[in-house]
Design a protein around this nucleic acid. Structure first.
Lengths: 264, 264
DNA sequence: ATATCCGTTCGGTATTGCCGAACAGCGTTC
DNA sequence: GAACGCTGTTCGGCAATACCGAACGGATAT
């Protein structure tokens, strides 16, 4: 019943599934029986695995009626992973500056073969909070960071990425045709930053700009997120330049340089 | 070589050791042979485990000469765990406010049987950055958050915690005698907030205050961290009141109430 | 008071994860 | 230039061990 080709350790895979299950569960915690049913294993086997995860702090157990919750070790590992990531270490102060200047939520995404993976975030001081998960591959064509990354790829690569994600629609503003995306990319290349005008979620507006390593390769993008009604057209242009400036600053601090535009 | 009594899953335990090993390693990444040597297992077994961890995103592999690094999933899990934690969700905006007002690094710790476990942090805008690990049990008697928590325990509990941590010394200012700690606790109970005057690290000054649940039980403490030379005595008192005010605000938003002072 | 659910414990079985040796690809060294 | 040492990788065989299912004890609800 295996689906992955190369050598794997079954019990470890099952344990990691448990972690994801508990973390995705409610804040109340999951009891043993529920966990066992969800993964389709015997209670005794699941119990042994859960105990191991608790011993290592990945999960914690709350009495009474033992329920399992995410443990402190997950926070510790996430923090350590972020601290050890050179990109995050350099980007975080820049994100904070941009957040303070703009009053918006700022995020930074890594370029994962054309797809954006957001790896850090600084929330704005506003009352509106967006929950924006970190560490997951997002759709490239409906986010400003994703489009800013796409605009730095060659046309062939864009075509490949577009096929891979299928240009699925998220809202009525989403770009779903390759021709539309092509036009949008042209616009981004001209002004230097990308926008997301309610293309991923109703009422949400984003502006993003790419940053580069010392080969001129696009490492990722930063983006600012706000509610649509808060922004006028002039503000968008102003914000775009502000985001672009900070992205360039990030490039500089990474000892990178902006890529020359590649020909078709 | 086992130390834990109850049922555990060996391969999972070994896998989790690998994660910690890689995360604690350098930013360059660890090659297979190094990992295998460190955990004392065969290359083939370690390889299979590493592959499983990579498949789940806990680790990622960088070419050439396959080296293993912390993966995006760790950031994702840490972020999710934080988002699902009601305390962090409520505390984060308050930490941000306090950081902006004070210009310092603000942290929040959970009370783990008298020991502080810092679970979230908002860095100040200053140039000086402190790396303060999250999710680990810290010493209670050399941190302001720890002492703020201690001051809310009964004298018997304080004695127990003091014995457990041994009142080890970290700097020449560290409190190492129970009599000294007793006196310090009295002072904290009078003014309502705790300080750490270079007791954990040279040149570092902290101020902390506790917060409570609706039973009046101390849930944890928040603390502000800065460099010693930046602060005069009057500023310390002013800062203490500011931190205390935000801790009280946190208590309020958690629908808690401050505990009545317990008798001896 | 009874019944049903939960978490836990305990052996038996065979699955499966571990080991060690052999292979292959590089970089270095002589 | 060739041979050596170091990597990471694959493959079979043994036995450790992780799984299962049933039985126990406790709590809650009916």
């Amino acid at each position: 019943m295996a689906e992955t080709a190369p050598t794997q350790v079954g019990s470890v895979a099952r344990a990691l599934e448990l972690v994801e299950l508990v973390v995705s569960g409610s804040t109340e915690g999951m009891p043993l029986s529920e966990v066992a049913k969800a993964v389709g294993g015997s209670k005794s086997a699941v119990l042994a695995t859960l105990r191991t995860l608790v011993d290592f702090g990945y999960l914690r157990v709350v009495e009474p009626g033992p329920k399992y919750l995410p443990g402190m070790m997950l926070i510790r590992l996430g923090d350590l992973a972020a601290a050890h990531d050179p990109l995050i270490a350099v980007a975080r102060p820049i994100l904070a500056q941009l957040s303070e200047k703009s009053g918006l939520t700022i995020r930074v995404a890594r370029n994962d073969h054309g797809f954006p993976i957001f790896i850090d975030r600084v929330d704005g001081p506003g009352f509106v909070r967006f929950y924006t998960p970190l560490g997951v591959r997002e759709l490239p064509h409906v986010s400003s960071a994703g489009k800013a990354i796409l605009a730095e790829l060659s046309d062939d690569e864009i075509k490949l990425v577009a096929k891979e994600c299928g240009l699925v629609s998220r809202t009525k503003n989403s770009i779903t045709s390759f021709a539309g995306l092509r036009k949008e990319i042209e616009r981004i290349r001209e002004v230097g930053f990308a926008t997301d005008d309610e293309e991923d979620a109703q009422g949400i507006f984003c502006v993003g700009a790419a940053f580069f390593d010392h080969f001129g390769k696009c490492l990722g993008a930063i983006s600012a997120t706000g509610v649509k009604t808060d922004l006028t057209d002039e503000q968008v242009t102003k914000l775009g330049k502000l985001v672009l400036k900070h992205a360039d600053q990030l490039t500089k601090e990474l000892h990178g340089r902006k890529s020359v535009r590649r020909e078709k």
